[in-house]
Design a protein around this nucleic acid. Sequence first.
DNA 1: AATAGGAGTTCCAGTGACTGGAAGGTCAAT
DNA 2: ATTGACCTTCCAGTCACTGGAACTCCTATT
Lengths: 134, 134
Amino acid sequence: MNIGDVAERSGVPAKTIRYYEDIGLVTPLRAANGYRSFREIDFHKLAFIGRARALGFTIEDCRTLLALYNDDNRESAQVKAVAEEHLRQIDEKISKLMSMKETLSSLVHQCAGDHRPDCPILADLSVVDDATFS
Amino acid sequence: MNIGDVAERSGVPAKTIRYYEDIGLVTPLRAANGYRSFREIDFHKLAFIGRARALGFTIEDCRTLLALYNDDNRESAQVKAVAEEHLRQIDEKISKLMSMKETLSSLVHQCAGDHRPDCPILADLSVVDDATFS
DNA sequence: AATAGGAGTTCCAGTGACTGGAAGGTCAAT
DNA sequence: ATTGACCTTCCAGTCACTGGAACTCCTATT
């Protein structure tokens, strides 16, 4: 398989696949003409990475997960630990975003949004108090 | 005010303030010794930026919001538009994260997390079907 | 055989918003 | 005079790509 085929089949862009080779995530063979030559196993790996990335795992997580996948002596607890840590980070991001959303939507609500200059959003941002945010 | 004082008062790290000067967000004066010399207005601006950043606005948004803040002829509708667009992006991020969270937490739930190698998380990631994620 | 196009290749630079670190200058107090 | 805290600049790194230039290669058509 050439890079275009595996890109289409896996859903991972060709550019990204080259990048993954650069950082040692995949190691396709090379044809006589210098083209990358992907085996089924390479495709499989890329699809794995693609799905892991879609779930928000970092590249390093992907490396870890691939290693565990290929390790017959793994314990499912190891995989679960990685996933749980990632889940924790997702939760953290969500709650940060939710708190931003709440503040912001309350401000947006208070703003007339008309032709006049008075704006509670700007008023809030320009509060004179020192270090009101952390 | 030296950079350390304004950093402490505004909550924006000194390194970040220097970066903000680099990209033209703030333009403190310079003392004879070469030190940056911050006026009240610079501090105020930095606090403004800090709060906007804490609400997740991009640097470019900050630039826009500062310009609107300093524009007597602004219409609150302009500010509201920026905030609403940002709010839309926050919502998008939240729903992406929520969908990740749901998939992931269901997988985590299904995983025994013990000493055995069998793992539904890895099983899901290694599904053989082509391009199951988008 | 020439040519056109759509692959593929490498390499370099840019994204956003900082952050770390090195190497050095300045200031206040002891 | 020296210490230590502060300030300066500049360069490099982060994360995970993405865009683009300049080039080669393959396939099909004229």
